[in-house]
Write a protein that binds this DNA or RNA. Sequence first.
DNA 1: GTAATAAATGTTATGTTATAACAATTGATA
DNA 2: TATCAATTGTTATAACATAACATTTATTAC
Lengths: 173, 173
Amino acid sequence: MKPVSPSDEPVPGDDVPFPRPHHDHDHCRHDALRRAEDVCARQGARLTQARREVLDLLWADHRPVSAYDLLHRLNADGRKAAPPVVYRALDFLIEHGLAHRLNSLNAFIGCAHIGGEHGAQFFICRECGQVAETRSPEIDSAIRTAGAELGFRVQAPVVEVEGVCPTCSGAPA
Amino acid sequence: MKPVSPSDEPVPGDDVPFPRPHHDHDHCRHDALRRAEDVCARQGARLTQARREVLDLLWADHRPVSAYDLLHRLNADGRKAAPPVVYRALDFLIEHGLAHRLNSLNAFIGCAHIGGEHGAQFFICRECGQVAETRSPEIDSAIRTAGAELGFRVQAPVVEVEGVCPTCSGAPA
DNA sequence: GTAATAAATGTTATGTTATAACAATTGATA
DNA sequence: TATCAATTGTTATAACATAACATTTATTAC
Ligand SMILES: [Zn+2]
Ligand SMILES: [Zn+2]
Ligand SMILES: [Zn+2]
Ligand SMILES: [Zn+2]
């Protein structure tokens, strides 16, 4: 079994958060847009044209994009949008849990999970630039425990891990 | 006992990484400089005037400082240093494990631990801006485990936790 | 000691990331 | 359709960071 697993690590078949090279990415994109519509509908928020376009650009692939890259892509068709357009759209998307900011890269990425705001951990491949987003209760709990030992009330843990993804580690396929 | 502990959390008396309001901070500063000299001596690196000054400025208190704040403080005495002065000094200090960069704040802080480069976790108080640096094997290990499950080779975990420190939580002392 | 070399610093300019402030437009509501 | 709130447009500027090259300072070789 284990048909196209990109690694020999003990990973569950299709739940691997690192995107496989030839996965159906159109599915990722369309799914993300659909989820965004759901979220906005439920929260009475408006997924306007600019916001939708930025979200779609974020889902061009599984790599984070800088705000100015987004701006250039937005303006590729001759438009003349200014930076606030992008930053406002990003603020909206982040507030509604549809995108995340990666502090270590000054870049943004579409949220791979469902639901509102939430903690997450990001694994960033130094080779290919792709990012996997996880929600590990174990990491979260280790952080909260360490915080408690300091008497620190944890509000927003940020975890961004640099390394090399399974594909770039030279896994079979 | 537990004479001036800032919190009722189960913390060891004097190992609390969050600085107590009236601790002997001159000791922190001088100790940091002395450790820096040790490290540089051992590594054959030169702790030049500019580097020493920046390190000393980083130890003004336990809050991170932006590069331009450092620059302004450097120039407070009429000097006319330019940004590269500060960024080079910071690069040096970081390379030698004497300072850290906090990505979520675009700011820098003196390393509170001894020794060369190392992973660490930062707990950042939203109220007072003070930062505690820890080295928690548990957090590190949770991250490495989660990475392994993705087939991801972890190289540099970044953990920056926002919240409220014991002092600002309204602890007794 | 002096020349050659390497390390560090000075200097100017520019690139990159992000926000402030206010005007104009659009969409919902009454 | 008048009103109000939300969104977008526009200009300017703030904040963060580095490239490139000249100059100086420290180390080493002779
Ligand atoms: Zn995909
Ligand atoms: Zn990769
Ligand atoms: Zn101190
Ligand atoms: Zn505090």
